[in-house]
């Protein structure tokens, strides 16, 4: 069970609660989208809810709470924010271009031709079981 110091001002407790709940809710919505949406390229979008505002709200809550509790400015959460904002786009872009190549390789006609690969006419023949590939 959580112990709250009795000197913590009420407004800090309320604002921290709101930010933590909001961040957690956005993260949850993001992963629900990951389960619910029906193709890979749509599923790339919802988890970014968690990596933008989701983690942002929780980091803000943490900064506010610790700054008041420790009675000094606690801002090292900014580092995590910077790190996450730089790395998420990189991983997502890498992952999407990898997915494009893989879809191209099994001959999926619904995706555009990935960079550096031959055009439509030279695409490999679609595999017979290409609707539901297992790997």
């Amino acid at each position: 069970m959580m112990e709250v110091s009795p000197t913590l001002p009420a407004w800090v407790a309320i604002v921290t609660s709101i930010l933590v709940l909001l961040g957690a809710a956005l993260t949850l919505i993001g992963t629900i989208g990951l389960v619910r949406l029906n193709n890979f390229y749509s599923r790339v979008h919802p988890p970014t809810l968690g990596t933008t505002l989701g983690i942002g709200c929780v980091l803000l809550a943490s900064m506010l709470y610790f700054s008041v509790v420790k009675q000094r400015l606690v801002v090292h959460e900014v580092l995590i924010a910077i790190f996450v904002t730089i790395t998420t786009p990189v991983t997502l872009m890498l992952l999407v271009s990898a997915a494009l190549r893989r879809d191209w390789a099994i001959g999926d006609p619904s995706v555009p031709v990935p960079p550096g690969l031959p055009e439509e006419a030279e695409r490999p023949e679609p595999l017979p079981e290409s609707d539901q590939p297992t790997s």
Partner: peptide
Amino acid sequence: MMAHSILIWSVATAEMMI
């Protein structure tokens, strides 16, 4: 205090959501 129990409750709820 009221606000403090709200904080305790919401942190626990947030953990469950995550």
